[in-house]
Design a protein around this nucleic acid. Structure first.
Length: 237
DNA sequence: TTCTTTGTTCCGGA
DNA sequence: GTCCGGAACAAAGA
Protein backbone atom coordinates (compact mmCIF):
# COMPACT_ATOMS: atom_id res chain seq x y z
CA UNK A 1 0.00 0.00 0.00
CA UNK A 2 1.27 3.36 -1.06
CA UNK A 3 0.36 6.78 0.33
CA UNK A 4 0.61 9.92 -1.74
CA UNK A 5 -0.58 13.49 -1.60
CA UNK A 6 -2.47 15.75 -3.98
CA UNK A 7 -3.24 19.26 -2.85
CA UNK A 8 -4.56 19.02 0.70
CA UNK A 9 -5.57 15.39 0.31
CA UNK A 10 -3.79 12.28 1.50
CA UNK A 11 -4.33 9.35 -0.82
CA UNK A 12 -4.10 5.75 0.36
CA UNK A 13 -3.69 3.46 -2.62
CA UNK A 14 -5.22 0.07 -1.89
CA UNK A 15 -5.32 -2.83 -4.29
CA UNK A 16 -8.74 -2.04 -5.72
CA UNK A 17 -9.74 1.20 -3.98
CA UNK A 18 -8.53 4.67 -3.20
CA UNK A 19 -9.04 6.32 0.15
CA UNK A 20 -8.94 10.11 0.13
CA UNK A 21 -8.41 11.85 3.43
CA UNK A 22 -8.69 15.55 4.14
CA UNK A 23 -7.55 16.48 7.65
CA UNK A 24 -9.70 19.58 7.82
CA UNK A 25 -8.20 22.06 10.21
CA UNK A 26 -7.37 19.87 13.19
CA UNK A 27 -7.31 16.26 11.97
CA UNK A 28 -4.28 14.12 12.77
CA UNK A 29 -3.13 10.53 12.60
CA UNK A 30 -1.64 8.88 15.66
CA UNK A 31 0.19 5.58 15.82
CA UNK A 32 0.00 3.23 18.75
CA UNK A 33 2.78 0.68 18.55
CA UNK A 34 2.82 -2.73 20.12
CA UNK A 35 5.84 -4.81 21.05
CA UNK A 36 5.47 -8.25 22.62
CA UNK A 37 1.81 -7.42 23.05
CA UNK A 38 2.63 -4.37 25.18
CA UNK A 39 1.55 -0.94 24.07
CA UNK A 40 4.56 1.30 23.78
CA UNK A 41 3.63 4.60 25.32
CA UNK A 42 5.48 6.84 22.98
CA UNK A 43 5.80 10.44 23.99
CA UNK A 44 4.06 11.31 20.78
CA UNK A 45 0.70 9.94 21.67
CA UNK A 46 0.52 10.06 25.42
CA UNK A 47 2.40 13.11 26.60
CA UNK A 48 0.83 15.69 24.37
CA UNK A 49 -2.47 17.39 24.76
CA UNK A 50 -4.16 15.10 22.32
CA UNK A 51 -7.44 14.14 23.94
CA UNK A 52 -8.63 10.57 23.44
CA UNK A 53 -12.26 11.73 23.32
CA UNK A 54 -11.43 13.15 19.90
CA UNK A 55 -10.24 9.81 18.56
CA UNK A 56 -12.82 8.97 15.92
CA UNK A 57 -11.49 6.11 13.83
CA UNK A 58 -9.21 3.20 14.76
CA UNK A 59 -7.51 1.29 11.97
CA UNK A 60 -6.11 -2.03 13.12
CA UNK A 61 -3.07 -2.72 10.99
CA UNK A 62 -1.75 -6.14 10.03
CA UNK A 63 1.47 -5.54 11.98
CA UNK A 64 -0.38 -5.03 15.23
CA UNK A 65 -0.12 -1.26 15.28
CA UNK A 66 -3.18 0.92 15.50
CA UNK A 67 -3.61 3.97 13.36
CA UNK A 68 -5.93 6.44 15.05
CA UNK A 69 -7.69 9.34 13.43
CA UNK A 70 -8.06 12.18 15.95
CA UNK A 71 -9.85 15.41 15.12
CA UNK A 72 -10.97 18.06 17.60
CA UNK A 73 -13.07 20.09 15.17
CA UNK A 74 -14.18 17.16 13.04
CA UNK A 75 -13.85 19.12 9.83
CA UNK A 76 -11.82 16.36 8.25
CA UNK A 77 -13.40 13.79 5.97
CA UNK A 78 -12.78 10.44 4.31
CA UNK A 79 -13.83 9.44 0.80
CA UNK A 80 -13.55 5.97 -0.65
CA UNK A 81 -13.34 5.46 -4.42
CA UNK A 82 -13.87 2.09 -6.05
CA UNK A 83 -11.81 3.24 -9.00
CA UNK A 84 -8.06 3.20 -8.55
CA UNK A 85 -7.44 5.07 -11.79
CA UNK A 86 -6.20 8.33 -10.41
CA UNK A 87 -7.04 10.47 -13.42
CA UNK A 88 -10.60 9.16 -13.67
CA UNK A 89 -11.61 10.64 -10.37
CA UNK A 90 -13.45 13.86 -11.18
CA UNK A 91 -12.94 15.03 -7.64
CA UNK A 92 -9.17 15.19 -8.19
CA UNK A 93 -9.31 16.25 -11.81
CA UNK A 94 -10.87 19.58 -11.04
CA UNK A 95 -8.02 20.59 -8.74
CA UNK A 96 -5.68 23.20 -10.14
CA UNK A 97 -1.89 22.76 -10.36
CA UNK A 98 0.27 22.32 -7.29
CA UNK A 99 1.91 25.59 -6.27
CA UNK A 100 5.39 24.08 -6.65
CA UNK A 101 4.76 22.56 -10.06
CA UNK A 102 6.17 24.03 -13.26
CA UNK A 103 2.61 24.39 -14.53
CA UNK A 104 2.01 27.13 -11.98
CA UNK A 105 3.82 29.80 -13.94
CA UNK A 106 3.26 33.26 -15.39
CA UNK A 107 1.73 31.96 -18.64
CA UNK A 108 -0.83 29.92 -16.75
CA UNK A 109 -1.59 32.81 -14.42
CA UNK A 110 -2.14 35.28 -17.26
CA UNK A 111 -4.34 32.91 -19.22
CA UNK A 112 -6.51 32.01 -16.24
CA UNK A 113 -6.95 35.59 -15.12
CA UNK A 114 -7.72 37.00 -18.55
CA UNK A 115 -11.45 36.32 -18.49
CA UNK A 116 -12.02 36.74 -14.78
CA UNK A 117 -12.87 39.53 -12.43
CA UNK A 118 -12.34 37.93 -9.05
CA UNK A 119 -10.36 39.71 -6.42
CA UNK A 120 -6.88 38.28 -6.01
CA UNK A 121 -7.55 36.97 -2.50
CA UNK A 122 -10.43 34.80 -3.66
CA UNK A 123 -8.52 33.71 -6.76
CA UNK A 124 -5.66 32.33 -4.68
CA UNK A 125 -8.12 30.61 -2.35
CA UNK A 126 -9.78 28.98 -5.36
CA UNK A 127 -8.48 25.41 -5.46
CA UNK A 128 -9.28 25.06 -9.16
CA UNK A 129 -6.79 27.85 -9.88
CA UNK A 130 -3.99 26.66 -7.63
CA UNK A 131 -4.50 23.82 -5.19
CA UNK A 132 -3.03 23.77 -1.75
CA UNK A 133 -3.09 27.35 -0.51
CA UNK A 134 -5.08 28.22 2.59
CA UNK A 135 -6.07 31.49 4.16
CA UNK A 136 -2.88 32.12 6.13
CA UNK A 137 -0.52 31.56 3.20
CA UNK A 138 -2.62 33.69 0.89
CA UNK A 139 -2.51 36.55 3.40
CA UNK A 140 1.24 36.22 3.77
CA UNK A 141 1.97 35.89 0.06
CA UNK A 142 -0.06 39.00 -0.76
CA UNK A 143 1.74 40.92 1.95
CA UNK A 144 5.16 39.94 0.61
CA UNK A 145 4.01 40.95 -2.86
CA UNK A 146 2.58 44.30 -1.70
CA UNK A 147 -0.77 43.49 -3.26
CA UNK A 148 -4.07 44.59 -1.71
CA UNK A 149 -6.30 41.52 -1.25
CA UNK A 150 -9.26 43.14 -3.05
CA UNK A 151 -7.30 43.93 -6.21
CA UNK A 152 -9.16 42.66 -9.26
CA UNK A 153 -7.04 39.79 -10.54
CA UNK A 154 -7.05 40.78 -14.21
CA UNK A 155 -5.73 44.22 -13.38
CA UNK A 156 -2.42 42.90 -12.04
CA UNK A 157 0.67 43.83 -13.98
CA UNK A 158 2.86 41.07 -15.37
CA UNK A 159 5.59 41.97 -12.92
CA UNK A 160 3.24 41.70 -9.94
CA UNK A 161 2.05 38.29 -11.06
CA UNK A 162 5.61 36.99 -11.40
CA UNK A 163 6.47 38.38 -8.01
CA UNK A 164 3.36 36.85 -6.45
CA UNK A 165 4.07 33.40 -7.91
CA UNK A 166 7.59 33.49 -6.55
CA UNK A 167 6.41 34.67 -3.12
CA UNK A 168 3.81 31.90 -2.90
CA UNK A 169 6.51 29.30 -3.45
CA UNK A 170 8.78 31.11 -1.03
CA UNK A 171 6.28 31.31 1.82
CA UNK A 172 5.30 27.65 1.43
CA UNK A 173 8.93 26.55 1.43
CA UNK A 174 9.72 28.50 4.55
CA UNK A 175 6.71 27.14 6.36
CA UNK A 176 7.27 23.53 5.33
CA UNK A 177 10.92 23.72 6.37
CA UNK A 178 9.85 24.97 9.76
CA UNK A 179 7.26 22.26 10.27
CA UNK A 180 4.03 23.94 9.28
CA UNK A 181 2.30 27.07 10.38
CA UNK A 182 -0.17 26.87 12.71
CA UNK A 183 -2.79 27.96 14.97
CA UNK A 184 -4.13 26.63 18.18
CA UNK A 185 -4.55 22.88 17.98
CA UNK A 186 -2.36 22.03 15.04
CA UNK A 187 0.25 19.35 15.60
CA UNK A 188 2.81 18.27 13.03
CA UNK A 189 4.12 14.70 12.80
CA UNK A 190 6.40 15.29 15.76
CA UNK A 191 3.43 16.35 17.83
CA UNK A 192 4.69 19.88 18.13
CA UNK A 193 3.00 23.01 16.93
CA UNK A 194 5.26 24.05 14.11
CA UNK A 195 7.14 27.29 14.26
CA UNK A 196 5.96 29.18 11.24
CA UNK A 197 3.42 30.74 13.58
CA UNK A 198 5.90 33.20 15.00
CA UNK A 199 6.83 34.28 11.50
CA UNK A 200 3.53 35.71 10.37
CA UNK A 201 3.98 39.13 8.87
CA UNK A 202 0.31 40.04 8.67
CA UNK A 203 -1.93 37.16 9.68
CA UNK A 204 -3.47 37.81 13.09
CA UNK A 205 -1.66 41.14 13.46
CA UNK A 206 -4.66 43.49 13.37
CA UNK A 207 -3.85 47.05 14.48
CA UNK A 208 -0.15 46.27 14.79
CA UNK A 209 2.57 48.09 12.94
CA UNK A 210 3.55 46.81 9.51
CA UNK A 211 6.49 44.44 9.91
CA UNK A 212 8.14 45.75 6.77
CA UNK A 213 11.14 47.88 7.59
CA UNK A 214 10.69 51.36 6.18
CA UNK A 215 6.89 51.14 6.26
CA UNK A 216 4.93 53.05 8.87
CA UNK A 217 1.58 51.48 8.02
CA UNK A 218 -0.79 49.58 10.27
CA UNK A 219 -2.33 46.17 9.69
CA UNK A 220 -6.05 46.16 9.04
CA UNK A 221 -8.43 43.23 9.25
CA UNK A 222 -11.34 42.80 6.84
CA UNK A 223 -13.60 39.92 5.89
CA UNK A 224 -13.49 38.61 2.32
CA UNK A 225 -15.94 35.82 1.52
CA UNK A 226 -16.24 35.12 5.21
CA UNK A 227 -12.50 34.72 5.65
CA UNK A 228 -10.28 36.99 7.71
CA UNK A 229 -7.96 39.04 5.59
CA UNK A 230 -5.13 41.10 6.98
CA UNK A 231 -3.21 43.68 5.02
CA UNK A 232 -1.07 46.75 5.49
CA UNK A 233 -3.00 49.91 4.65
CA UNK A 234 0.19 51.59 3.53
CA UNK A 235 2.29 49.16 1.47
CA UNK A 236 -0.36 46.85 -0.03
CA UNK A 237 -2.23 48.55 -2.83
C1' DT B 1 -25.01 33.02 23.78
C1' DT B 2 -22.00 34.47 20.22
C1' DC B 3 -17.95 34.44 17.67
C1' DT B 4 -14.07 32.27 15.47
C1' DT B 5 -11.53 28.81 12.83
C1' DT B 6 -11.16 25.68 8.03
C1' DG B 7 -12.33 23.97 3.02
C1' DT B 8 -16.17 23.00 0.40
C1' DT B 9 -20.73 23.40 -1.53
C1' DC B 10 -24.77 25.72 -2.65
C1' DC B 11 -27.48 29.52 -4.27
C1' DG B 12 -29.02 34.07 -5.90
C1' DG B 13 -27.74 37.81 -8.76
C1' DA B 14 -25.34 39.83 -12.58
C1' DG C 1 -24.33 29.09 -19.42
C1' DT C 2 -20.78 31.25 -16.59
C1' DC C 3 -18.84 33.85 -13.07
C1' DC C 4 -18.84 35.89 -8.57
C1' DG C 5 -19.35 36.49 -3.63
C1' DG C 6 -21.81 35.59 0.43
C1' DA C 7 -23.98 32.22 3.40
C1' DA C 8 -24.14 27.79 5.28
C1' DC C 9 -22.11 23.68 7.17
C1' DA C 10 -19.35 20.74 10.14
C1' DA C 11 -17.67 20.91 16.02
C1' DA C 12 -15.66 22.89 19.86
C1' DG C 13 -13.44 26.23 22.68
C1' DA C 14 -13.01 30.89 24.38
Amino acid sequence: MRISRRSKYLIFHFKDKLLLVHLGMSGKFLIKRKKNNMIIKTSFYYDLNILPQHNHIHFILSNGCTLIYNDVRRFGFFLIFENTKFNKIVFLKKLGPEPFSNMFNIKYFEKFVKTRKKNIKNLLMDQTFVSGLGNIYVNEALFLSKIHPLTQCNSLKNKSMKNLISNIKKILKISINRGGSLIKDFKNIHGTSGSFQGLFNVYGRENKNCSRISCNGKIKKISISNRSSFYCTSCQY
